[in-house]
Nucleic acid binder design. Structure first.
Lengths: 354, 354
DNA sequence: AGGGCCAATGGTAGCGCTACCATTGATTTG
DNA sequence: CAAATCAATGGTAGCGCTACCATTGGCCCT
């Protein structure tokens, strides 16, 4: 009872039975520590409910054996997988980076692991992905944008898992929501550029639904102010796979100037596009912002270092991540979520390019 | 036996017993289809072993009930989680993007889901992360770079899970390896710049171990060629968290020119840094490549569109991803892996900047 | 025709963990 | 001082699935 006899750090003692991984299990640790398996479980999941001396003994046994709990088994038994599924267009998009970082960080602090599933910007694999995600029984699901597909919505609702939609706004979320209005951004940019005496505003955008809504907002705002907009056709290259690239920004400006030489301002759907526009402008000797003003979106870390420094739309990405995580954690702990719909807003960061 | 009577698409029939998710289980589907649970399991996991008519009936039952298998239970029972853990510095780094994309794609095609764990560039949380990853019993683990920490190596070996190390080379991998030599890259760049009559080469690098080894390779190569190098101290900002930024590239060049005005070439540890260098050079009226040549690393999608177009080191990222996935898939299927150590090499893409 | 073989399906017994209730002994309370 | 309370621990019975080994019936072979 008080003798913790060391056993050789368990392996190759002939795999037991017909199945099993042949690895250390909770019962092995329990035996070594002279307690019941459930006590080891408590040491791991609710250490405050175990006596100090017992805690010590069990922890020593864990170290001695190199025990690593099997979360598949734990999750199955407790219906808590400690897993969060995040559906994102692509993990590499710098626009969302800060959000996923904060999300991961916040969840990690609460004992959850975030796993990302990539839907692609078209959202084609979305439905299939939701199914495979639900198959792992996550404790929460975070979506990028609003889930539009009815089948996807149904699946999520039937799965009975807390869901947070992010980076957008709708009066009818599936469950919870942390985002902002893309239409309002467009309108605000129109107003901003109007204030800068720009009257012929164009848009260069990647084929992204939310970007398109920002463009629509711009058109609405401009119309209201009585100024012209030129909604350029989508930049044809690089559009599908990823957020806009430097190259498509350059091509966008070339195309735009060919068709509408009178343009005096461009609203880009990402800072990378905006950088491309400015590089092309510089190559052609077009002064920014005097001749053409450029506004980006995302406020990426390089925006402050471009020449001229980029005026851009900034969204508090980390806040979205933190709040989304909070929503799910609160829900998981049985607390009711005070604000199931949060608008984090946005701001226009004025620099030199517009 | 032949009557598939519809039951109301199961929910809210009062959660059974004291536990359980209250959701459709495999037995519910089996009952509805008039078969044993194991047959439903086979429909899902080995459909070719089931008669066509049975297959049809079971699939209809699955659709009717909206059944989504519980992979926690399945994984526990079969010791196959269909999960792959990938440890990466940060998911957002554009340098690795193509690799993770190909990796995810290849695994996805074989029925695996890839989950990413972020170690941070310092690798501080690495050990802890490995533990939590192993707790989910992945069928394979993919590492970015070589695992150096002895405790990490031990854990991985004891876990008895296939491991692939990537993006680097070592004669003593834990298990399998797909990468290339960073030293050789440095040497090749030295040779390349020497061929361009550059004799005072500097390095601007992020605080990344592999980047530092490329710099070392450059020094080695330059020394062998009898030309000078200036190994600049690390750019002090943005260094820890992420790959180099545009801003740190600009700062790097400023710093370098202040201390070593004679510099005639700069090797950057990432294309983003290189872009920053070129922007700063342009702002100062320094002609690239005539006065200073710039070489990047990564061959990111914007490299071809910078002004001047960026000469950079290209690595076949997708190949690394595909091959790493193949290694693990082969191993999982009991096949022996023909080449457990693969050197994918690299190339220098000559454009205008050097 | 009898044996062997194979394709298709099922019964049973776990996988490794935790929820749910005991149970124990020590401590408090009226 | 008996009853009630509490902190600490344990026994039992699953969680939902699949490995393993039958079992069944049809087909081929000699």
């Amino acid at each position: 009872m008080d003798d913790i006899s060391a056993s050789p750090p368990g392996h190759t003692e002939g795999r037991r039975g017909r199945r099993g991984s042949g690895k250390v299990r909770i019962t092995d640790v329990a035996k070594l520590a002279g307690v019941a398996p459930i006590t080891v479980s408590r040491v791991l999941n609710a250490p405050s409910s175990v006596a100090a001396e017992t805690l010590r003994r069990v922890q020593e046994a864990i170290n001695r054996t190199g025990y690593v709990p099997n979360m598949l088994a734990g999750g199955l038994a407790s219906s808590r997988s400690h897993l969060i599924a995040a559906l994102v267009p692509t993990i590499a998009s710098p626009v969302f980076q800060a959000t996923w970082e904060a999300l991961t960080e916040t969840f990690s602090g609460a004992g959850y692991h975030v796993t990302f599933g990539q839907t692609g910007y078209g959202g084609a694999r979305e439905d299939e992905l939701i199914k495979t995600m639900i198959a792992r029984r996550p404790d929460g699901i975070v979506l990028t944008g609003i889930m539009h597909s009815p089948s996807g919505r149904r699946r999520l609702i039937e799965a009975d898992i807390p869901v947070v939609e992010t980076w957008d706004l709708t009066p009818t979320p599936i469950d919870m929501l942390v985002g902002f209005s893309h239409e309002h951004i467009g309108e605000a940019v129109a107003k901003y550029l109007h204030g800068k005496k720009k009257i012929r505003i164009a848009v260069i955008t990647a084929a992204d639904e939310r970007a398109r809504r920002r463009a629509k907002g711009l058109a609405t705002g401009a119309a209201r102010l009585g100024i012209a907009t030129i909604l350029a056709p989508e930049v044809p290259m690089f559009v599908a796979a990823a957020p806009g690239t430097l190259g498509s920004g350059r091509k966008g400006l070339i195309d735009l100037l060919a068709r509408h030489p009178e343009v005096d301002a461009v609203f880009c759907s990402s800072d990378m596009l905006a950088l491309g526009v400015m590089i092309e402008a510089q190559a052609r000797g077009i002064p920014v912002p005097e001749r053409i003003a450029v506004v980006g979106y995302g406020d990426l870390n390089f925006a402050v270092d471009t020449v001229p420094a980029l005026t851009t739309v900034s969204v508090d990405g980390p806040a979205i991540g933190r709040l989304a995580a909070r929503c799910i954690i609160d829900r998981a702990q049985g607390r009711s979520v005070a604000e199931p719909i949060v608008d984090v807003g946005f701001s226009i960061v004025e620099r030199a390019s517009a």
